[in-house]
Every structure is written in structure tokens, then in C-alpha cells.
Amino acid sequence: MSRRLALTAVLSLAVLSAVAPAATADSGTLPLPRPLPLPVLQGEAPARLTITVSGAGNAAADGTVELRCAPAGGSHPVAEQACGRLNELAGEGKDPFAPVPGDALCTLQHGGPATARITGTWQGRRIDTALSRTDGCEISRWDNLGPVLPNVG
């Protein structure tokens, strides 16, 4: 009995192997998969960001600046350093604009009333993120983006 089942399985596999290529040949060429985006490993990661900071308690830190990378420029006061930090994070495979995961355990500390909003493009994708200093996770997120964001801590 098991011999019969094994023979049936082998014959079924042989028939399917012969039929599958013929079926795809009739339908023409198969579409090729889309290429995956490759991370930027060397050089500067392209960026065009608008950064708005408020509540920092420092007139020089509050306001809106533009940051362009590759090449570094815009109205950001330390564009070279900010682009360098973004490139460093990109090289580490980190997304500096990702929100804090919902299941993260964050310390209950307050880092002040400063808030920031960053919009634009980074590494070819759209960015629209809000940052604050309302708990340990948000403070860490803010500090991780220094000197893109001003030091207010």
C-alpha cells in the first residue's frame, strides 16, 4: 500500500513538473520582480528636510530651518554636521525618524517643552515626524538626532 502511495506521489510530481513550464510558456514572459532599494553605504545620503523647533527656550534654537544633504546646505546652522549624523545613522541601518514603538518601556522623566517637526525627504522616502522631550524614549530620540536638532537638554 505504501509503495502504491509513493509511486502515485512520484508520478504526480513528474506530471506537474512537465505541465508547469508549458503553462507559463503559453502566457508569455513572466514579469521580473522589482529591485529592492539598496542602502547608501558610502558618501552622503540625499536629504531635503524642513525642521521646525518650538519651545526650546532659546531664540536661536526656535524656528524653521532647511537642511539639504548631498551636498550639505540650506539654512541649517550646522548643515555639515547634521548631514554627517544622518549619514552615520544611515550607515548603521537605523531610521532616525521612526516613532517610538508602542510597546516600548520609557522612563517617566520630562525633558522640557521643546517640540520639533521634520518633514521632507531622506534616502528617497517621505519624512513627516514629530518629536518632543516628554519621556525617556522621546528624549533619546531627540538626542539621537543631534546636531540635526538643537541641544536643548
Rank of each mutant, 00 (worst) to 15 (best):
A90P: 00
G112N: 11
A6S: 11
F97S: 01
A9Q: 15
V78L: 04
A6V: 15
Q109V: 07
R133L: 10
Q42C: 10
Q109N: 11
L49D: 01
G136R: 09
R125N: 14
A60E: 07
L149V: 05
G43Q: 12
T134Q: 15
T134V: 15
H76M: 03
G111V: 08
C137K: 12
P39C: 03
C69S: 08
V10K: 02
P77N: 01
N58G: 02
T52D: 08
A70Q: 15
S12M: 15
A20K: 06
L38T: 10
W142K: 02
P113I: 07
Q123R: 14
A60I: 07
I51C: 00
A82Q: 00
T29M: 06
C69M: 11
D135T: 07
A82D: 01
D143I: 15
I139C: 04
L32Q: 07
T129V: 13
P39R: 06
C137F: 12
A45I: 06
A59E: 05
S12L: 10
E80H: 05
T107V: 07
P46A: 02
R4A: 06
I51G: 00
T129W: 04
S54E: 02
L131Y: 13
D143L: 15
K94Y: 12
N58R: 11
L30F: 06
G111I: 04
R133F: 14
M1N: 13
P39G: 09
G120Y: 11
G63A: 11
L13N: 13
R125P: 04
R3D: 13
T50C: 04
P101V: 14
A82F: 00
A22I: 09
G146V: 13
R68K: 11
P150K: 03
V152I: 04
I118K: 00
Q81C: 04
V40P: 00
V148A: 02
D62C: 03
R34H: 05
E44G: 05
L32G: 09
T129F: 06
A60W: 03
P35M: 07
N58F: 08
A60Q: 11
V148G: 01
D135Y: 12
D143W: 08
T64I: 10
V19W: 15
A45H: 04
V19K: 14
G102A: 14
G136D: 12
G28F: 04
W122F: 10
A47H: 02
W142Y: 14
G73Q: 01
T8L: 15
A45S: 13
